[in-house]
């Protein structure tokens, strides 16, 4: 499926394990540039580990990863992580206000973040500017997720990795975030890799889908594959609904 598109990220026989626990096995394939690819599969399939490999938070045990044709290790870690942004599933926050969290990526570069920009970003993710001075401890799960997404966007990444960012959002917020991510993809051509347990979401917003199970990619293709998978394990996963 990906051969017709220029790859944003390409994996070549990537393995990853911690101690004797094999997390990823022989991952080979590409995420097309400028497209939205969803990663689906049961818990423990290795999806989050795959995203962390792309952002350089982890390195493969063997195999190669290329970011736009360049070997991942040829990037300085800091440069790579600004280019390939990740919104983590747990939406961790540094203590203090929403502004402090939004300013974090800029302050890490030794610069100051303009409050006006922070307010605009908050509006983009469906939170008003009134949230700017709110303490992160007073935010709901969904609001934390939105702040986490906004904070990842501050670095203006070329590739955006999203780890179950809508899992704790209500229906309205979920639609807002889906629209925002689609808009970013269309407006800036940002490549999106999105882990979701919501198969309907994968069908609605994803151009392509990777189905992962037990550390392997078992089926890939356009998102419609989820309507009629060819692999028996994927069929049973899809029929059972996402877990």
């Amino acid at each position: 499926m990906t051969t017709d598109y220029k790859p944003a990220i390409h994996f070549n026989h990537v393995d990853y394990s911690i101690n004797d626990n094999q997390i990823l096995r022989g991952i080979t394939g590409s995420f097309p540039e400028g497209k939205i690819t969803t990663l689906v599969g049961p818990s423990g399939a290795g999806k989050t580990t795959l995203l962390k490999l792309c952002n350089g938070l982890l390195s493969p045990e063997s195999g190669e990863i290329y970011i736009k044709d360049k070997q991942i290790n040829s990037f300085e870690p800091v440069e790579l992580r600004r280019k390939v942004g990740i919104a983590l599933q747990s939406a961790p926050m540094v203590s203090g206000t929403v502004y402090r969290n939004l300013a974090l990526p800029v302050e890490l570069r030794g610069e100051k973040y303009d409050k006006k920009e922070a307010e605009n970003l908050l509006r983009d993710v469906g939170l008003g500017e009134k949230f700017l001075d709110r303490k992160v401890t007073d935010l709901s799960g969904g609001q934390r997720q939105k702040v986490s997404i906004a904070r990842t966007l501050v670095n203006k990444p070329e590739i955006l990795l999203l780890d179950e960012i809508t899992s704790s959002l209500d229906r309205t917020s979920l639609k807002e975030v889906e629209e925002l991510i689609t808009l970013i993809n269309q407006k800036y051509g940002t490549t999106i890799i999105w882990i979701t347990h919501n198969l309907q979401q994968a069908l609605d917003i994803g151009d392509f889908t990777w189905v992962m199970m037990d550390g392997e990619v078992v089926e890939t293709g356009e998102s419609d594959l989820l309507r009629a998978p060819s692999n028996d394990r994927v069929k049973s996963f899809v029929q059972g609904g996402a877990q």
């Binding site: 938070l57 992580r81 983590l88 747990s90 961790p92 540094v94 203590s95």
Partner: peptide, 20 residues
């Protein structure tokens, strides 16, 4: 650990990630 990983993921150095 989550906070440390967050700062690293946003392009922070180990020193910045472990500062707090």
């Amino acid at each position: 650990q989550d906070e440390t990983e967050l700062v690293l993921s946003l392009g922070g150095t180990p020193k910045q990630a472990i500062h707090n």
